[in-house]
Amino acid sequence: MGTDDLKPFDRTDDAVELGGVIDLEDAISRLPPQARLIFVLHDIEGYRHEEIAELLGVAIGTSKAQLHRARKLLREVLEQ
């Protein structure tokens, strides 16, 4: 690090900041229906994949895959 380098404490442009809560809520509302439902049940309501699978009548693997899809889509949407 050079002597003029102040980066350790500077605010960086590439900080991992993905918008506020309002943006997030909007992004969630745009998710595909099933991915959104599973995201809400798992990440907001705190239900486990096993419980979600039982409730929705889907395989546990489907619940995991849809959650992964929802989170990936949210990352993409919030980065735009």
């Binding site: 993905l18 809560v21 997030l24 990440d43 949210l74 919030l78």
Partner: peptide, 21 residues
């Protein structure tokens, strides 16, 4: 990984209220 954790952290601050389809 940091981005994912950031989203999860923000998600958890939401009330249990997001609209189900």
């Amino acid at each position: 990984l940091a981005k994912l954790r950031s989203i999860l952290a923000k998600t958890a601050t939401l009330p249990k209220s997001i609209t189900p389809p």
